[in-house]
Nucleic acid binder design. Sequence first.
DNA 1: CCGGATAACTCAAGAAGGTTGTGTGTTCAA
DNA 2: TTGAACACACAACCTTCTTGAGTTATCCGG
Lengths: 384, 384
Amino acid sequence: MAQPPTPRGVTPARSRDHNRQLVLGHLQAAGALGRAEIARRAGLSTQAVSNIIAELEGEGLLRTQGLARGRRGLPAPQYVLAAEGGFALGIEVRPGALLAALLDLEGRPVWHDRRPLASAAPEDVGAQLPGLLAAALAAAPQAEGRLLGAGVALPGPFGRTGIASDLPGWDGIAAAEVFAPLGLTVTVENDANAAALGARIALAPEGVTSFACLYFGTGLGLAIVQDGRLVVGAHGNAGEIGHVPIPTPNGPQPLEALLSRLSVERHLRAAGRKAGDMDALAALHAEGDPALADWIAGAAGPLGLATGLIENLLDPQTIVLCGAMPEGIVRDLIAAAPLTERSVARREGRTQPPLRVGRCSRLAAVIGAGALVLNRTFTPALAA
Amino acid sequence: MAQPPTPRGVTPARSRDHNRQLVLGHLQAAGALGRAEIARRAGLSTQAVSNIIAELEGEGLLRTQGLARGRRGLPAPQYVLAAEGGFALGIEVRPGALLAALLDLEGRPVWHDRRPLASAAPEDVGAQLPGLLAAALAAAPQAEGRLLGAGVALPGPFGRTGIASDLPGWDGIAAAEVFAPLGLTVTVENDANAAALGARIALAPEGVTSFACLYFGTGLGLAIVQDGRLVVGAHGNAGEIGHVPIPTPNGPQPLEALLSRLSVERHLRAAGRKAGDMDALAALHAEGDPALADWIAGAAGPLGLATGLIENLLDPQTIVLCGAMPEGIVRDLIAAAPLTERSVARREGRTQPPLRVGRCSRLAAVIGAGALVLNRTFTPALAA
DNA sequence: CCGGATAACTCAAGAAGGTTGTGTGTTCAA
DNA sequence: TTGAACACACAACCTTCTTGAGTTATCCGG
């Protein structure tokens, strides 16, 4: 919903929910664990964990995988997430298209689809939903009855703000209503935030829980994740980094004008290249196009400045770059970005690189939309 | 501790803790409420709230204050926090001094003290603690046995980072050990974060729960509060805004060089004024000193840029300015700051001003240190 | 090869916390 | 005057977690 949650009172049922999420989250992050080990990590008794695991196993959300041999004592059965035990539907609304993806419990996409949208008005999108759900279940019948919820990614910002939205007429509240007919629990976020939670699924096994994410959509978005939870601000619109002024020889320019799909395309067009989509961009990069190399050299500086800004303001473990920018270009950008030493993130014993590559694909946000659901499933939050 | 908390499993006892904090938090924010009203807001049954309130009243943390007349039905006894029912000790370590304050449950300081420190080494600070506690209890004997904990504010950043600390040898972990002999639950944060939670106590009745705080210490610090909780980053060092480069006619300069105590003092010294402390600054401001007005005019631009940056990156309800800068100067800065319209915080129906004045005092951080304890008391967090 | 230490798990009993249902008392409005 | 609305208390019940005793399986040293 992109709205900060209000803390709620704890009742026995909500306790169980919280503890279930905690157990699933530990398994997601660690891969395979025994009951006693989960209990230690969660701060619960082994008995409580045993009960929860029996319940989750009965629901098909996890299964045993071998025994922990090699240590003293009774060998503990190891539990892992059952990928086919639960599925998450991700939906992304863009000005020209409606995207959808179905993720299994491990976050792998088992199906995805893209439908052109003549109009992105809420009612026209709503009309597509029944067909979308039917197509997903037709392609992945094993998901029938096992949908954990739906996540929706929209380009921000939500509501009427000082920054124009790419998708007027939508905001977090209204969106939840549009998708209510799916009959699923709906979570709405902007595209950058969704993509960041997609990255979180992949990064959790490395112990990365607090990070930032620079997302290449039309412009450039920033998402902030602390402790596995999004930092979205008072109205869900945190992360508008695209308009931050960056000093250049021609005066300050918005970061988005220097580091984004629009920026690279404009630069290439001015040089007489055609690069209207990612494949064309990737091809130009593969052949070592000098105009593209020129753009990368120019964009690396602003990326370095943005990195310093994000590190000092937010102290993340790392910053993930993802979205609709070919991976090779992102790698070059990271390699060329001048990183300042004056940062609180430059600490001794740091294990994460300052910048790293995430999912470089047009699907980053729609897969992230599905990950919204998985993160809700894995992240205990006594607040809703 | 300035470390992100790890979610823990819920047990019955932790449930009660959480719900107690929730009840106290609602009373702190709303002033006076009946049991049924609290139950509705917290999502609990009236019976549960009744039990909790009976417990809290027995401990002296709240008391009744009149009846809610004028509505139908049985007049509900209204409950309010009992200011004298609990106290929080705040301690601030600075390079040259050790400050302490005792706050009552409503956040009002009932005592404060300042002791010069020849050395800010942990062991020398530790040696002062018994005397400090004794002095506090001597000045406020009603706090005996009613201390809820101790909060500690240190200048950041913690640990060895790319930015030098004003107080080498300290970090969040070590600090908790230094203060353990107090026999109180200790919470450690950097000075800006502490000051921000001090502001939160004052702002909660207005419904401000997500905001940012610019803190004038030696340099300039930023604290980020979302939903009543600090956003501290992966290692507790989020908010280093002082080194953000700001474009000026003489090239980019760190924000701290343009907007901070050091900056104004350097500017005034260059103009032949003496302004070594806050009183001198306030006096110059009162007499309309032109050199000071000149500095304010020059600092307002950077403040406006920082405001735009914070608003777009964090989408706060408001930004609070506080710390060691005379209130009149802060008011002038706010009035003169050029605010961009291009911000996600510029929304319809906005009730909070973009910038507002907080506690303009050298005591902002030490009082905030006490507020760390109060916020722990008022903010439910099933995580520790 | 055997016995003790170690560790994980299960079962049963108990404790803590919250909810629901019933009843009582007070106030406002028709 | 009467009924609806509302707050609260008491008691029974439910859910969840913890604790303690007992079982089983593995490792390791003699």
